[in-house]
Design a protein around this nucleic acid. Structure first.
Lengths: 292, 292
DNA sequence: CTGATTATGAAAATAATTTTCTCTAATATA
DNA sequence: TATATTAGAGAAAATTATTTTCATAATCAG
């Protein structure tokens, strides 16, 4: 914890009553205090602005604004590395003030990315990259939330000229899976690893001779068991209420790594295509006269 | 480097002469500026305080003090993460070993989420949440990469019974935008803030009487200027080669905060719907006999 | 060259902060 | 017990900082 907050907490003994009220308010959500005026803060604590100024001076700041700036800096430091408690997924409940939600969300997402990274098996990842780089055709499967992840990958892959498709329609998934063969890759995304439609599609693709990759939350699941190369994101959320928010971020994180790995592996082939696709979009835009 | 400093450096083209003097002074030693008053800074730059206030507004801060607090937070970030791969955003080049890519990607995504969080303006965010909670209808606009973000929000909103649509087709966007009216909300996502189709759609929605919200990378952009409530993600990537990876993560981070904020605001209404949607999907699955 | 637009600073208005002064209540002392 | 003393608090005045308004100068398009 930052020195300022630490001091507020541990030097309460030397504070007066009003000062204690103030210290508690600041500790309860320092992130808000940083954006408040002295009057607003005074009202919330039921004390006078004068007391706040005096308190800041006692703490050796030049005044209240100086205190705010220093506190802001320290807050940024402290949440830059929430080492306390390692994986700390916060639950979000009714009527939480926005500042709490923001902090919790940040903590969840940061933890999720860190955990996912530490779960990675580089060799396996490399095999997946190699398969994808050399695939004749790539099929991406995913339902609901996971279809977002699949589509994201799709958008990246087509930019580097990989022949691929992303289906959200389960019939289309099966149809496409049946037509795959050796040298093709099927890539299935599912948070739980138990989505029946996605399982079916990957099973079908495997039966047709394609290589199979899964991306699920960590743990044993039908989909991961089925896949030739199972990849995992971190899994600590409870699912339902949270809408799988952190897991989706973590899965996209893996997609980014896969994609970047592919580009890095075949730099010469892929980068020109990537640039060309960018330039073409720009060019098209310049040509546009007005609306439409 | 922090998004704010980055913007100051790279958007010099759009600044006026006086603004440029100011930007240079800030860049030359941001750590000092953070502890100055507006008058002092004005003198040092040889410009008037009024110009500084105006400049802060252009950059979407509430005023000079707000700018100082946000800048202080970001400065703290930048020298807070020395271990995680040096200066924040890493470029990814040919033939990097996978381990380097993984580390760089993690550093990028972590930095992106942190920076985005520290740029947030809670009041503005709350206004956006209030608008969305009470909207009669919500339109989501976004092209290409940004359509992923829009669709993600769409999937969340329909789960809590919000009447909304996400269009990727630009004609449909305009068509829908024209039919909006007071009490409706248009929400536009664009990494650059300069996507013509998205700008047109939001402008049209605004003209029709709808409230408008934008989600772009930090910096002044047409879309952000146009929007009633501009929201920002951190922006440090160079775009083209990287495929806007970190920015997309940051934007989803904001979507998660918005959504969670909505649920928290109207817990009683929304949670039952969220649970019902989950249970219905489960129920449907149990009924399934075999495959597709 | 003219009119319109934009950029800028001076100064007025407003808001925020700090200081001063006063009052209160607690403690010590006769 | 009564009174002096003092630290803590707030009200209000003073100061300072910021923002807005308005007038002017510079720039640009026609």
């Amino acid at each position: 914890m930052s020195p300022i907050l630490h001091a507020l907490e541990h030097e309460q003994a030397s504070f007066s009553q009003m000062e204690r009220k103030l210290a508690e308010r600041i500790l309860s959500s320092p992130g808000e205090v940083v954006h408040m005026g002295i009057t607003e803060l005074a009202e919330q604590c039921g004390i006078s602005p004068a007391t706040i100024t005096r308190f800041c001076k006692v703490l050796h700041f030049k005044g209240f604004p100086d205190f705010k700036v220093k506190l802001a800096a320290e807050l940024a430091h402290s949440d830059a590395s929430p080492q306390e408690g390692g994986s700390s997924y916060q639950d979000i409940v009714a009527g939480n003030p926005l500042s709490v939600i923001v902090e919790a969300m940040q903590a969840n997402h940061l933890t999720s990315i860190r955990d996912t990274t530490s779960l990675l098996d580089l060799e396996r990842l490399q095999s997946a990259i190699d398969l994808l780089c050399n695939a004749r055709r790539v099929d991406l499967y995913g339902m609901a939330t996971s279809s977002i992840v699949a589509q994201d990958f799709y958008q990246k892959l087509i930019r580097i000229g990989v022949n691929c498709t992303a289906f959200a329609d389960s019939h289309m998934q099966i149809t496409s899976a049946s037509s795959l063969s050796k040298g093709d890759v099927a890539f299935a995304v599912s948070y739980s690893g138990e989505t029946p439609e996605t399982i079916d599609a990957l099973a079908c693709a495997g039966a047709s001779g394609a290589s199979t990759i899964s991306l699920t939350s960590y743990g044993s699941s039908t989909l991961a068991t089925l896949a030739g190369i199972p990849l995992f994101s971190s899994s600590l959320e409870q699912g339902m209420r949270r809408g799988d928010m952190a897991s989706r971020i973590a899965q996209l994180h893996i997609i980014d790594i896969l994609f970047t790995g592919m580009v890095s592996t075949r730099f010469g082939d892929f980068i020109p295509k990537l640039e060309q696709s960018y330039l073409n979009v720009q060019h098209y835009r310049h040509k546009r006269g007005g609306q439409s």
